[in-house]
Design a protein around this nucleic acid. Structure first.
Length: 201
DNA sequence: ATAATGATTCGCT
DNA sequence: GCGAATCATTATG
């Protein structure tokens, strides 16, 4: 089942970050389909979170995407190298987003290996937000595109694809600049899943 | 117009 | 564990 607009718009971004674990991210880029199970996320809230690009609802050319209604893709370039994929949540003009930090490959693995220039399947294929985007063909051309149309990128609920799992909660990675907000417990991951990135577990 | 800085990854020690 | 790579974005003059 395609996740509907209500999923993205009618819940708090922290709740959505948890709820996205176990959902299936699908991309169709250059005619190639890849699917992967979301196993690690982080929440970013524009209203009051210093770590969020749109802290205090600050509008810039880059953050404009986060002000779209929930159910859009926010893709930006980090460190001049990596494209990071986020899910925009909340209603229009409330700039919240969930960063997808790691996924478990499900189909289209050959395509992912080629994009990552890897010959063997290891957890490094999709472990970390830059790797997820590279493997699934996500780049800035997908910024601001809708997740509701099953066009190039979308997210589905396929039921218990991971069977039962528990969720671990920790602080977010790489947000030391955010002062006290760096300590918010807004990073979520599937406990024991090997595809989760290796930072503070 | 210029300068500083990352929501990271990879390779080397 | 450490540091380089690399550039769009942002703030400032």
């Amino acid at each position: 089942m395609l996740l509907p607009a209500t999923f993205y718009q009618h819940q708090d971004v922290v709740h959505i970050a948890r709820a996205l674990l176990g959902k299936v991210l699908v991309t169709q880029v250059d005619g190639l389909v890849t699917e992967a199970i979301i196993v690690e996320t982080e929440a970013y809230r524009g209203a009051d979170d210093r770590a969020c690009h749109a802290y205090l609802r600050k509008r810039t050319a880059r953050t404009e995407t986060m002000f779209l209604p929930g159910g859009h893709a926010y893709v930006y370039l980090c460190y001049g190298i990596h494209h990071l994929f986020n899910v925009v949540t909340h209603v229009e003009n409330e700039p919240d987003a969930v960063l997808i930090r790691a996924v478990q490959p499900k189909s289209g693995i050959e395509t992912m290996l080629i994009r990552r220039k890897m010959s063997q399947l290891t957890v490094k294929l999709t472990q970390g937000p830059g790797c997820v985007s590279q493997a699934m063909g996500i780049n800035k051309s997908l910024n601001a595109s809708s997740l509701l149309g099953q066009d190039c990128i979308w997210i589905e609920d396929r039921g218990p694809v991971l069977e039962t799992f528990s969720i671990n909660t920790t602080t977010r990675v790489g947000v030391g600049y955010a002062g006290a907000d760096a300590w918010l417990p807004w990073r979520f991951y599937v406990a024991g899943n090997p595809w989760v990135s290796a930072y503070p577990k």
